[in-house]
Amino acid sequence: MKWAAVLGITFIFVCMALFEWPKLGRGSKKEKIIFLSLSVIGWFLGSMLVFFPNPPGPTELMDGIFKPLGKLLEK
């Protein structure tokens, strides 16, 4: 089932690439590289969350940093 989710994520990216690639053809190489690297980051994060749901994320990090101030509003 989890592999199916990863397959679904991959499918979304294939659709995105099919939609975007013809338009990128005219553009420079830089745009293609950035499109691909952002997609790879997204695919990687998405697949990671399929296998490890709810790892500590950015929210926990910021919660840790701003905790001393946040205590003011604790009630």
Binding site: I12, M16, G27, G42, T59
Partner: peptide
Amino acid sequence: PIVLPIGFLILVLGHWA
């Protein structure tokens, strides 16, 4: 070109929030 990949990143971050 970066609209769609960033949209997916937002979705992932929303799931992760």
